[in-house]
Amino acid sequence: MSDLSLARAALDVSPPSGLGAQVEAMPLRGMVTIRGDLGDAGFAAALQAATGCAVPEVRGSTVSGDTRVLWMSADEVMIFCAWDAAPGVVATFMEKAGDAHVLALDVSDARAVFRVSGEKAWRVLAKGAPVDLERMEPGEVRRTRIATVAAGIVRTDGDAFEIFCFRSFSTYLWNWLCVGAGAESLSDL
């Protein structure tokens, strides 16, 4: 029974369309933070059991069905999954990890996710992210800043990027993305 739609808090600006980039607020998504020794076989087995995914390479992500495991740091991954699947992922991982020194937390409500897609999507993000987005590989994860907000960017496929940030910044970032995608300037970029 979740009732706080993230888009609800973020409707100060309407998302523009037809300018080469679309911005969407994604519905609630299951998210799990897991920390531990990513190189450990037991960790990999527990992650596989919980998500069906292998441990991703540095700054990469692995996908199985609608579950994606994102490399966040040397000892941390983030799991994107269905919202109601997150508790199960935590439980399965902790059970399989046994006595290993790990941490798995359901953080499905901590962050907001936006999707920016289209031919000019990377140009919208390049207005505030100091990252070579044009050369980002599909599946690549990049934690950086957008304007002054800490954000993660994953190139999900082709022209599409998913952006995640702490939920309290979602109104700001939504507005920021919409202003950037709405500028008629995209035509000459």
Binding site: V58, R59, S73, A74, P130, V131, R142, T144, R145
Partner: peptide, 12 residues
Amino acid sequence: PVCGVEAEETEF
């Protein structure tokens, strides 16, 4: 050296 990216100072 941890995540391998070469990034501008503002990320650090």
